[in-house]
């Protein structure tokens, strides 16, 4: 049973598009509730021994990519993220390989089903040499409005790398969306850039569901 979950910085209802601070995913029509359940059931891992986070802190919880790579998960991510960006009139959605790929591809596919063109761009972590691959892959041009996405944000470094690479290329980053914010300072790091950031879920919300399931 999934109860009322308090969002840390407000989520849009996929259906209504309205912002609210307190979220009851069941009442909101299900997409977020379904994705949260799926994330919990497929991607949430509780480790018996501690793990060390990118920030150096310890945790016992890890979010793997199984939900994002499931057919249902991709569909839900695509629907939810598309709803959040459809009014922004952006040319593309993307970010740092590989986390952004799991969010950007389904979003672009959903856009296509709605009759909208939305390209994907991928920022490569490192370019080894001077071959054909570019730092930013995808059909984007200088001045294009884009949304940067990522699946799990920890300290925000990967999102920041994507933002910097996009800006260096000449893209106009209008928003950042992450699937799960681990609440390890990433939000604050991105906010310093002045770009609005939204997390579909926080680790706190996933842990709340975890508590309810125990």
């Amino acid at each position: 049973m999934l109860g009322t979950i308090t969002g840390s910085y407000g989520l849009d209802s996929p259906q209504a598009g309205a912002k609210c601070d307190r979220i009851n995913y069941e009442e909101k029509g299900g997409l977020c509730a379904e994705l949260l359940r799926l994330l919990y059931e497929l991607s949430f891992r509780e480790s018996g021994t501690p793990i060390t986070l990118a920030s150096g802190r310890k945790s016992n919880y890890y979010i793997c990519k199984d939900a994002q790579l499931s057919s249902k998960g991709m569909g839900l991510v695509g629907d939810i993220v598309y709803e959040k960006i459809k009014e922004l009139n952006v040319h593309a959605v993307g970010g740092l390989e590989t986390g952004a790929v799991f969010i950007a591809f389904p979003t672009a596919m959903v856009a296509r089903t709605k009759g909208k063109e939305l390209n994907v761009f991928v920022v490569r972590k490192e370019l080894k040499g001077h071959g054909i691959p570019k730092k930013i892959e995808g059909k984007v041009e200088k001045g294009d409005k884009v949304v940067v996405v990522d699946d799990v944000m920890t300290s925000g470094e990967s999102v920041l790398k994507a933002i910097n690479a996009a800006k260096e290329f000449g893209l106009d980053v209008v928003k950042v969306i992450v699937l799960v914010d681990r609440q390890e300072g990433g939000k604050e790091v991105i906010e310093e850039t002045g770009i609005p950031i939204e997390a579909i879920f926080t680790m706190e919300e996933i842990l709340q569901l975890h508590d309810e399931r125990q």
Partner: peptide, 18 residues
Amino acid sequence: FERLASEYENQAVPSNRY
């Protein structure tokens, strides 16, 4: 350092690995 950083996949490694 690059290879060690890539092990995190922007999230975590087991603490015994750390």
